[in-house]
């Protein structure tokens, strides 16, 4: 009997200590969305259950190892106890009930998290290897996600290539972004600040760096930013170079190609590309080692049919092959015009 009492007390002590300790070190990042609150609530319940179960197993385990260890010179066996059906049924049924309750709480937490708000602002998110772009209701596209505090938003997300996943740790929610189908994520930011959206699904070489800034701001700051973007977009749309620059942003070229001569390790830089000599490692119909001049025709071919000529030191099948169909002739010439300015 004494053993049971001591172990029982120790279980309670250890459970409380574990729970308190885990709470004290702040396991989760700050709560920056309305959705994070029910999620963290559920999480705390789970931590309580885990702490208790941890103690419930660990204490008798360690207690037995110490108290019931074999003493020197003792060669006898332990007590012959084969089992106890009542106990077995107890520890089948009680966890069963716990687990069912947990699943029930889980279900309605999920309901809270997914709740639809008809006033939500709609933002289109495009994911591609390896960049995010956001199209706002005002019609422009940017590489940053600006949100208004306490304003629910619904993100309509689609990928142009492989599967990505939208995740802001402080918002808690994660959602995969698929090619050929739209997935949605609903969030209501509640804390002003700067965050980062990361891609949480392995999507190839550049996955590590597939991030974009998320800025949650007040009404005034938000409006200022939106107006500035709208204005800049209108100006840029007037010249081919400006349009080219916009297209480059919208199509995520810059996630692979740098424009300042720095190396991304994924694709050649565009700085000084125009009219330079490019050494090829092969391609659909060229011999390895050929050197070509990067004239306009070459740039167009490289966009429409990237496999035709592979730049030495880079891989085939990395650059998407779809730009020839998704971009129009005039859009391509706008992009080329823009690339030509990057001396």
């Amino acid at each position: 009997m004494r053993h049971y009492v001591i172990a029982g007390v120790l279980v309670i002590v250890l459970a409380v200590a574990t729970y308190a300790g885990l709470m004290a070190i702040h396991l989760m990042p700050v709560e920056a969305s309305a959705q994070s609150i029910p999620i963290d609530h559920l999480w705390n319940i789970e931590i309580a259950i885990i702490s208790f179960l941890f103690a419930l197993i660990m204490v008798p385990l360690i207690y037995s190892l110490i108290v019931f260890r074999r003493r020197k010179g003792d060669t006898s066996d332990g007590e012959h106890i084969e089992g106890n059906n009542t106990l077995e049924i107890t520890w089948t049924v009680i966890p069963l009930i716990v687990v069912l309750i947990l699943a029930y709480i889980g279900t309605y937490t999920l309901g809270d998290v997914l709740a639809v708000d008809p006033n939500a602002l709609e933002i289109n998110v495009t994911a591609r290897q390896w960049a995010w772009s956001f199209t706002y209701p005002e019609g422009f596209t940017a590489k940053e996600l600006h949100l208004l505090v306490n304003q629910p938003v619904v993100l309509d997300m689609q990928s142009v290539d492989v599967i990505h996943s939208f995740w802001v740790p402080q918002f808690r929610i994660k959602q995969d972004v698929l090619p050929g189908r739209i997935t949605t994520e609903r969030i209501t930011p509640i804390l002003i600040g700067n965050y980062t959206v990361t891609c949480a699904q392995l999507c190839g070489t550049g996955h590590t760096y597939m991030t974009a800034p998320v800025i949650v701001s007040t009404q005034a700051d938000y409006d200022t930013w939106i107006q500035a973007q709208v204005a800049a977009a209108t100006v840029a749309a007037q010249t081919p170079i400006g349009r080219g620059q916009q297209l480059v942003a919208q199509n995520g070229c810059a996630s692979c190609h740098s424009i300042d001569g720095s190396s991304t390790g994924i694709a050649p830089t565009w700085k000084g590309l125009y009219q330079s000599q490019v050494k090829l490692s092969g391609g659909t119909n060229v011999a390895p080692g050929t050197v070509v001049i990067a004239n306009e025709a070459y740039l167009i071919e490289s966009i429409v049919n990237p496999s035709a000529k592979i730049v030495n030191g880079f891989q085939d099948n990395v650059m998407p092959k779809s730009f020839g169909t998704t971009l129009t002739q005039s859009q391509i010439s706008d992009i080329v015009a823009y690339i030509e300015t990057l001396k």
Binding site: H3, I57, P60, L61, S64, L65, F68, R69, R70, D74, S76, D77, G78, E79, I81, G83, N84, L87, E88, W91
Partner: peptide, 12 residues
Amino acid sequence: FSWVSTLWKGKI
């Protein structure tokens, strides 16, 4: 639970 009960009162 069965493992822990196996250890309990054994001669470990």
